[in-house]
């Protein structure tokens, strides 16, 4: 492994990236059209809406909920969502007494097929370090105050496991359909740093 010192005198990262892309293309290792399609996909179509559809289905279909908690990846694939970083998704359920919150302490692992790419705060060293040490405080700072009797479980991503939180369905939404529930379900609720609010 080369760890280049003196990166300050190196060309800008934009030029470096372009140089790398050129070299890899010339060597036949990447097809720029394939790469463009991948980037467009993550910029426009893969994101938390996918996860929201999974959660809304689980809230309205008990059999699906059981399958989702038993084998997240397979149940998520039933709705058509799969791909990189989705090979081993484990779904954990929040309840009135137990609250799961997700982190990747070492880098930025995240369930791309259902949430898209992670937000900045998820990748930030402060969140990664602090949510493990003082989850209750960090969640409160992010606007989620949990009672002292609610147990918090911090789910750290590993080289294989990607976590997805199944949030609690808010009371007062019993009359809503699956399609009406989807827009209520936020990315933050599926990472475990927020609750889903009734409309």
């Amino acid at each position: 492994m080369t760890t280049t010192g003196g990166s300050d005198e190196s060309p800008s990262v934009a030029l470096r990236t372009e140089a790398l892309e050129q070299l890899l293309t010339e060597r036949g290792l990447i097809d720029p059209n394939v790469m463009d399609a991948i980037i467009t996909r993550y910029e426009t179509s893969v994101g938390p809406l996918n996860g929201a559809e999974v959660v809304a289905r689980a809230w309205t279909d008990p059999d699906y909920r059981r399958r989702l908690l038993a084998d997240g990846t397979a149940a998520i694939k039933e709705l058509g969502f799969s791909g990189p970083q989705g090979e081993h998704i484990v779904v954990v359920e929040n309840t009135p007494t137990l609250h799961n919150v997700v982190v990747c302490t070492l880098c930025s692992c995240y369930p791309w097929p259902v949430l898209g790419l992670p937000p900045s705060w998820y990748k930030d060293p402060a969140y990664r370090a602090r949510v493990v040490r003082e989850p209750r405080t960090v969640l409160a700072e992010m606007g989620l105050t949990l009672d002292d009797d609610v147990q918090i479980v911090v789910r750290d991503s590993t080289s294989e496991v990607r976590w997805l939180v199944l949030p609690e369905r808010p009371s007062g939404t019993e009359h809503l359909t699956e399609a009406e529930l989807v827009p209520l379900i936020t990315r933050d609720a599926m990472v475990g740093v927020a609750r889903v609010a009734a409309p």
Binding site: V13, A14, T17, E18, L20, E21, L24, I30, D31, V34, M35, D36, I38, I39, Y42, E43, T44, S45, V46, G47, P48, L49, N50, A52, P84, G116, L117, P119, S120, V182, P183, T186, R187, D188
Partner: peptide
């Protein structure tokens, strides 16, 4: 709501080169 990557007020990539660097690794 059908704008997932931006729906929580955040762009996926801050600069064009970031999307290329991301795309290179995934491709």
């Amino acid at each position: 709501p059908a704008a997932p990557p931006r729906s929580n007020g955040e762009l996926v990539f801050a600069e064009p080169w970031e999307s290329r660097a991301f795309g290179l690794a995934v491709t």
